[in-house]
Write a protein that binds this DNA or RNA. Sequence first.
DNA 1: GTCTATACGCCGATAGAC
DNA 2: GTCTATCGGCGTATAGAC
Lengths: 207, 207
Amino acid sequence: MDQELDTPQIISEKKAEMPDKILLAALSLFAKKGYFTTSLSDISSAANLTSISELYQHYPDKRAIAYTLYEHIFDNLNVSIDDIRRRTDKPSEQLRSIVDLLFKLTDDAPHIVNFLLIAKTNEFLPEQKALLDSPAFTKIYKIFQHGIKTGEIRNIDPMLAMAYFFGIISNTLHLILTGKLDKKADAYLAQTWLAAWNLIEKKSSCF
Amino acid sequence: MDQELDTPQIISEKKAEMPDKILLAALSLFAKKGYFTTSLSDISSAANLTSISELYQHYPDKRAIAYTLYEHIFDNLNVSIDDIRRRTDKPSEQLRSIVDLLFKLTDDAPHIVNFLLIAKTNEFLPEQKALLDSPAFTKIYKIFQHGIKTGEIRNIDPMLAMAYFFGIISNTLHLILTGKLDKKADAYLAQTWLAAWNLIEKKSSCF
DNA sequence: GTCTATACGCCGATAGAC
DNA sequence: GTCTATCGGCGTATAGAC
């Protein structure tokens, strides 16, 4: 339990080898301008390559860059969730850890959270599996199911509980990322966690 | 108060004159495939035009179509909000009416709500004013400010209250639109309204 | 294996025939 | 004023020189 949860290395930033340099550049651009308005030329400039051709030494085409990015981020999210589930099987603690992670990421790697939020609705990434169909999503859904079964979460459609809970979380993060909420994510963490959790907690008198 | 609120004619569907036929086709395609993956050819087919050129008789370019659509939808939303504010100045009733409207729209004109949700984050509509900067948004923000001043809403950052409230609403609508929640929006209205309102209500014991 | 130069397709936009 | 035919540009992708 005191085994700390580091900011996950969603993308290795240490000794940025070439492919990661490209991915970081792409992530930043996609998060800022979107996939379709980002050209390969933009990416190669941002990654300090001499020309577009260099991209093709590492990725077969543009979609592959986006898709690799998508996989990196979702795989790491998935791993983080596995870690969390391994550490405790109490839904309240699992959800708390996930929220902690997301808020921490918002401060430390805002592009990644932006990418996640965009991937939620978007025309981003031609025909990719949406956020809603990723393994990470399914695992989180199971947390809600489990919480309802054990009585920690009140007895409503688990999908609805999830909608409420992450509606609060993701919308708050979104306003932070767009600057409508002007403090760091960390400043809103405690309050927002309480709002989201109390809303779905069994013993809560919200209902 | 019993002055009924019709589904607003966001886009006149009655005797669909040409420009509206085009807008409806575009709305549907943009909501489904996104702006950038929708070609003028797609739009002209969907609108049953004989050729792309016909589009140019009504709109100067592709962006104009998207922008007109954006204006129609946001202007109508804005008008609806004005109506609501004129009918009552009690924030709880105003917010309830807005939520009613959004859920009704989700059942009656899902593309419009989809468009609104997409416009929230998106790379949609090159460089347009985001949802967050529209007059409609500002007016809703004032409802929260007012509610806090009169004591109906508890005393937190109004932007945060808004984030929580509409996080629940919009995330729920999103899951309905994507089919993850499989009933009609109307079936979730009462419960979701309660969740969202109780969360920010002053007398609520959620906190 | 690095980069320049170029090919190719798609799509937005237009011109001009009827 | 309706439609066909075409242009031009951008952006992806490749070939080929060094």
